[in-house]
């Protein structure tokens, strides 16, 4: 049953991913990417990561994609995407070859990974409490650095958005 759900959600994720890449208008790409994010959120639920699934929908499908749609509509693109002649096919082939190469490297890496035996934990993994426990004990320093990262991103975005880019 769970495998059936997994396969259905994986099919949705892959099909919407293909549509993201091969749509001509960026608005349609963005809308298909939202479908992709929802499918991946469903996969997180299947993997007992309820908190991450909620964060995925709120942050990715909510905040980030709204930002994308806002910028796409702000720029109001009319000209369709076109390629210089005699340049497109070879580039496509090279892109697919490189992507296949990266996939092969990833699969090889996954097979080479030394997988230790899992520690038997009785705590139910994935609830918000255990993530918070991990976040504020083992990963306290990265958590604080993350806040600095967000501050830097905010300052950078504000400076870039100023009308005079000098």
């Amino acid at each position: 049953m769970q495998q059936l759900f997994f396969l259905a959600l994986a099919a949705i994720a892959l099909i919407s991913g293909v549509l993201v890449v091969f749509q001509t208008h960026p608005l349609r790409s963005a809308l298909w990417l939202i479908v992709n994010f929802f499918a991946v959120a469903g996969l997180y639920l299947l993997a007992h990561a309820e908190f991450i699934a909620a964060i995925q929908i709120i942050v990715y499908a909510g905040a980030i994609m709204v930002l994308f749609l806002f910028v796409i509509m702000l720029l109001n693109l009319r000209r369709p995407e076109e390629a210089p002649p005699g340049y497109r096919l070879g580039q496509k082939l090279a892109a697919v070859a490189l992507a296949a190469l990266s996939a092969v490297v990833l699969v090889y890496g996954f097979f080479q990974a030394q997988i230790p035996l899992a520690k038997e934990t009785t705590v139910s993994v994935g609830n918000t409490e255990s993530i918070a426990q991990s976040l504020f004990t083992n990963y306290l320093l990265p958590f604080e650095v993350t806040s600095v990262l967000l501050l830097v991103a905010i300052v950078g975005a504000v400076i870039l958005s100023k009308s005079k880019l000098k």
């Binding site: 991450i52 899992a118 520690k119 038997e120 934990t121 993994v125 991990s134 083992n138």
Partner: peptide, 8 residues
Amino acid sequence: FKAVDGQT
């Protein structure tokens, strides 16, 4: 692996 670190 029943580990929470991945989710973190």
